[in-house]
Structures are given as C-alpha cells and as structure tokens.
Design a protein around this nucleic acid. Structure first.
Lengths: 133, 133
DNA sequence: CCCTCTGTATTAGCTAACTAGTACAATAAT
DNA sequence: ATTATTGTACTAGTTAGCTAATACAGAGGG
C-alpha cells in the first residue's frame, strides 16, 4: 500500500477497507486483519490501524470484539451508510465550491434548479466539464 | 462580530467581507477598513486581518496597494465570464457525481435543500472521536 | 494456570496551522 | 524631510492533529 503523504494514514486505511467492502473482497461478517498484522504489512504503528478501525466502527461499518478481532458488519445497511457518506461529501463540497465563487447557498440552489430544468445546458458559455480542483 | 471558535478567524473575516460585497454594503472600488482599524474593531491582531485580505486578493476579490489600502475590485476587472464557467462546471460535476451514486437530479435537489437548511454540518473532515482524558 | 492471540490505554514527540508581538517598508499629505 | 497613514515580514508561542513506543487488558486454546 502506497501512501499519499498529505493525507493521514488512518484515513487512507479506512478508504482502502471501504473500497474492499464495496468491491466484495471483504464480505459481511468477515474478519479484518489484526491491527498488528496489518500494521506490520504496511510498516506503520498498530495504533494507527486501531484508529482506522475505531473510526470505521464509529461509522457503523465494522464492529470489534476485544481479544477476538474486528469484523465487517453483517447488515446490508453498509452500502447505504457508505452511500450516504459519499452523498454528504458531494453536497458539502458543492456548497463549499459555490461559496468560494461568491455564490450563496440560496443562489446555488436556484442555479441548480435551473441547471437541472434545462438539462444541463450552459447558457451559451463554453463549459469545461472536467472535475474541478 | 462574533466568532465561531472552531473556525479560523481570518476565514470568518473573509466570509463577512464577501457577504458585504454581495449585499452591496461594500461596493466595487470601495476601500476596506485598514488592517489596524478592523483589527481594533474586532479585537484581533492586525496580521490576522492582513491574512484575510491577502487571501481575498489571491481569490481575485480585492486588490491591495501598499501604503494606500485594500479595495474591492471593479466589476469589469473581475473575471465574470470565468466565474460563470466555474459555476457551470461545479453544477455539472455535482449532478454527475450524484448520478454516479445513483441519485437522480430531483433527489439531488431535495438533498441539497435539506443540506443547506441544516447548515451542512457533516462536512467536518477533521474528526477526533477518541475519548478525552 | 500459561501462553498467545486479540484490541485498548497512556504517554510523548512531531508537525502544520493559526494568531500575536514587534519591527520594517511603502505611499501620500504636509 | 517629516509624519501619519497604509500593508508586510519576521519571529515566537499556542494549539490540534497524527503517529509512535510502550504497557495494559480481555478472550481462548494448550
């Protein structure tokens, strides 16, 4: 596992595990590698992995039993939880980017309504549809 | 001016000034209060205001002349078209990302209304949920 | 019990971000 | 030139967040 130096390791670990759950490499009920094992694998302190597992538990994605291990939760709620999380992130960044352009949330909503009503036409202005930032 | 203790002061100052520009309290070409004056008003260090002004300049919202002051940029000099393009890009990418999560435009709008009504607090990325001592 | 697996708590050190104190530098009016 | 205004540079101290080193604690098999 290679790390982006600007992003906290425990967050990257979380993302990796989420990705494995979504892709099916980690199935509901399955045990995650122990904090020490995974820590050894990626050459990092066990506490950093523990932190990632704790946050994942807090997010409702895994559960932990002391002395036994950490496991992916059984419920199919998990995809829902993950989806909601991403949706929230998209919403947050949308309003944040709009705000950075001097557009108030109210205006942003109005623009979004127009945009969606017009089927995404860009009112004559050439649009660069690449993902910003 | 009251400050949210969890948000850097210079960011709150920036937001306040943007709001004043949008509302017309600060007009194009008009001079902003000096760093010392505003610092005195809100009981904060001049450098903190300077930081806010620098970031606003970097964002193309104001310009600064040393020894003279900081001013709101004239409308003609503000890259309005570029701003429009960016707004369109943000809108487009918003709906595209939502679609990739299986969220229809209609649902996206509804979620956005909700999100903005609730203040969008779930954007907190810096989370430390560990128990304090 | 003893050993070894699991997660957890405690503590410390490092770094980046923010803010303040102070001194410097440019502009313009006198 | 002097003076009063403006923004800026430099330095230091505080804080929050991340990671590591180490020791503690629960579960289960010999």
């Amino acid at each position: 596992m290679r790390f982006e130096p600007t992003i906290p390791i425990y967050l990257q670990v979380m993302d990796e595990i989420k990705a494995q759950i979504v892709s099916g490499k980690l199935k509901p009920g399955q045990q995650l590698p122990s904090v020490r094992e995974l820590a050894q694998n990626i050459q990092v302190n066990p506490n950093t992995i523990a932190r990632a597992y704790q946050e994942l538990e807090r997010a409702g994605i895994v559960f932990t039993r002391r002395g036994q291990g950490t496991f992916v939760r059984e419920e199919e709620k998990i995809p829902v939880i993950l989806k909601q999380e991403k949706v929230q992130a998209v919403l947050s960044s949308f309003f944040k980017e709009m705000a950075s352009l001097g557009v108030s949330p109210k205006e942003a909503l109005s623009l979004a309504r127009n945009f969606s009503a017009e089927g995404g036409k860009s009112s004559g202005v050439r649009t660069d549809s690449r993902k910003p930032k």
